[in-house]
Simulated scan of single mutants.
Amino acid sequence: MTQAIEQLTRYRQMKARIQVLSNYSVGAGITVSRLNEDDQLQELHRKLRGLPTYMYLNKRELELETAAHAYLDRYPVGVKAQKRAIPTKGADQEDTELLQELRRKIQKVIAARGYDIRDDVDQIIERLAELQDLQAEVNQIDTVLDALEQHKSEYARLIRKHLIDGATWEETAREMSLSKSAFYRWREKAIEEYEKLAIC
């Protein structure tokens, strides 16, 4: 029960921290929240890799992909390594132009992510990881409270008012028309119900 109370009373603090982390600049006008979106896009790309590329690449992108396959034995991890792996010249003028376009596209990604101007990548990764952990925890609380709302709406109301919003027991009891003893009985039951729903 103590763990649930601690988690719920930290809800507003976690939301505030998410707001701060989301606006942390990593350079080139990019914030940690943008990097988080990029991570989600990469996850989508991983899913797309299971599909034939003609289903989601346009004609020019397919030409670039073919050039990459022809000139790369392997695909290194990380955009900087990928750029280094792409040769500057191809077998003919057309291939050279395709390879140069590939290098330009990768350079744009490097610049957009601020990798050229930031050397504190570890700090950026820590902040991104913290942001993702906090978002997951806040989303879990929201999911459980929404479920509790459907199941026992008065318990969800008490938790939101007293534990999340930080209202005193007197304020909460008055708003919900409860006596002091009824408030504490409901509070205990509300937390118990929350914990039952939260167990995964």
Rank of each mutant, 00 (worst) to 15 (best):
D122W: 15
D122A: 14
D122S: 15
D122T: 13
Q123M: 09
Q123L: 08
Q123I: 05
Q123K: 08
I124W: 13
I124S: 09
I124E: 10
I124H: 14
I125F: 15
I125N: 15
I125G: 14
I125E: 15
I125H: 12
E126M: 06
E126L: 13
R127F: 03
R127H: 04
L128F: 08
A129D: 09
A129W: 12
E130W: 08
E130R: 07
E130T: 10
D133Q: 11
L134V: 00
Q135W: 04
Q135K: 01
Q135T: 04
A136D: 09
A136I: 11
E137T: 05
E137C: 02
V138I: 13
N139S: 13
N139F: 12
N139R: 08
N139Y: 10
Q140W: 05
Q140T: 03
Q140Y: 07
Q140A: 03
I141D: 06
I141Q: 12
I141T: 09
D142M: 00
D142P: 00
T143R: 08
T143I: 10
T143F: 03
V144I: 09
V144K: 06
L145G: 01
D146R: 02
D146E: 13
A147M: 15
A147G: 14
A147P: 06
L148H: 05
L148G: 05
L148F: 13
Q150M: 11
Q150L: 15
H151N: 11
H151E: 14
K152T: 07
K152E: 07
K152A: 11
K152N: 12
K152R: 09
S153M: 10
E154H: 09
E154D: 07
Y155C: 06
Y155V: 14
A156L: 03
A156F: 09
A156P: 04
A156G: 02
A156C: 08
R157P: 00
R157F: 14
L158M: 03
L158P: 02
I159C: 02
I159G: 01
I159L: 03
R160P: 01
K161N: 06
K161Q: 03
K161H: 04
H162S: 07
H162T: 04
H162L: 04
